[in-house]
C-alpha cells in the first residue's frame, strides 16, 4: 500500500492506547504518525468471504460447514436464512514490523499494535460495508459481523472456519494449536444475511462478558 493512502481513525488508536484524546502529548502523537507511515508500507490487507446456508433452532446453529451452539450468535442471527463467513488479514509484513520494534523499541511496538488493530477494524468495516450495499441491491440485509471468541461463540469454531474459507491458501492466514490466528492481525467473522431489516445495535465489544476490560468501548 502507498504511504498516505489509508484513512485512519485516530480516536480508535488512542482508545486502544488508553490515551485521552485531549491530553495526548506531542511525543506520542509523533510516534503514532511514524507508525501509520510504516504500517501503510508494510500492510497488505486481504479479505475473503463465502456464503453458506443457515438454519438456527434455539441456540443451535448449522451453517453446513460448521455446527455450533451459541446464545449470543443465535440472537445476532435472528431472521437470517444465509450466512457469510468472512476472513481478513493485514498480512505477515505487519507481524515482521511488530516483531522488529518489540525488540528494538517497545514504546513504538505498543503504538504499532494499537494502530494495526485500528487499521484492521477499519478494513473489515469498509469491506463489509461494500458487501452490505451489494446485498442490499438484491434486497437482503447483512447483520453486524460477529467473531469467534465474542460472547459464547466458541473459538473452537476457528478449526472449521479457517479451512472452510481456505484462508491459508487464499490470504495466508494460519491457525496455531491454541487457536490463535497468524499473522496476528487477522479476523474471522460470521455475518448473517436476512430478508428482514433489523435495528441491531449490539455489536462486537458490547456483548463481551469481560466488563472490566481496559479497552471496552
Amino acid at each position: 500500500m502507498e504511504a498516505g493512502t489509508w484513512s485512519w481513525n485516530d480516536r480508535e488508536i488512542l482508545r486502544y492506547l488508553g490515551c485521552k484524546t485531549a491530553d495526548t502529548p506531542e511525543t506520542v502523537r509523533t510516534l503514532i504518525e511514524e507508525c501509520k507511515t510504516e504500517l501503510e508500507q508494510s500492510a497488505a490487507p486481504k479479505a475473503v468471504w463465502r456464503e453458506f446456508p443457515l438454519t438456527v433452532q434455539g441456540q443451535e446453529i448449522d451453517m453446513g460447514c460448521l455446527k455450533t451452539s451459541s446464545r449470543h450468535l443465535s440472537r445476532n442471527l435472528r431472521d437470517c436464512d444465509r450466512i457469510l463467513l468472512f476472513g481478513a488479514t493485514l498480512g505477515a509484513g505487519v507481524d515482521i514490523l511488530l516483531g522488529r520494534y518489540e525488540k528494538l523499541q517497545l514504546s513504538k511496538a505498543v503504538v504499532l499494535q494499537a494502530s494495526a488493530v485500528a487499521m484492521l477494524e477499519t478494513y473489515c468495516d469498509e469491506t463489509i460495508k461494500q458487501l452490505k450495499e451489494e446485498y442490499l441491491a438484491e434486497g437482503a440485509y447483512l447483520r453486524p459481523r460477529f467473531s469467534p471468541g465474542y460472547g459464547d461463540f466458541s473459538l473452537e469454531c476457528q478449526r472449521m472456519i479457517v479451512p472452510a474459507l481456505d484462508l491459508n491458501r487464499r490470504i495466508g492466514v494460519t491457525l496455531t494449536d491454541a487457536l490463535l490466528m497468524l499473522p496476528s492481525k487477522s479476523v474471522t467473522a460470521a455475518v448473517g444475511i436476512s430478508q428482514v431489516p433489523a435495528d441491531c445495535r449490539v455489536e462486537g465489544c458490547e456483548v463481551c462478558g469481560k466488563r472490566d476490560c481496559l479497552y471496552r468501548r
Binding site: 492506547l17 488508553g18 490515551c19 511525543t27 506520542v28 517497545l106 514504546s107 505498543v110 503504538v111
Partner: peptide
C-alpha cells in the same frame, strides 16, 4: 500518563 509515555520514559 499513558502506556506509550511510560515506555518511552523507561527506554
Amino acid at each position: 500518563l499513558f502506556l506509550p509515555q511510560l515506555l518511552m520514559s523507561a527506554e
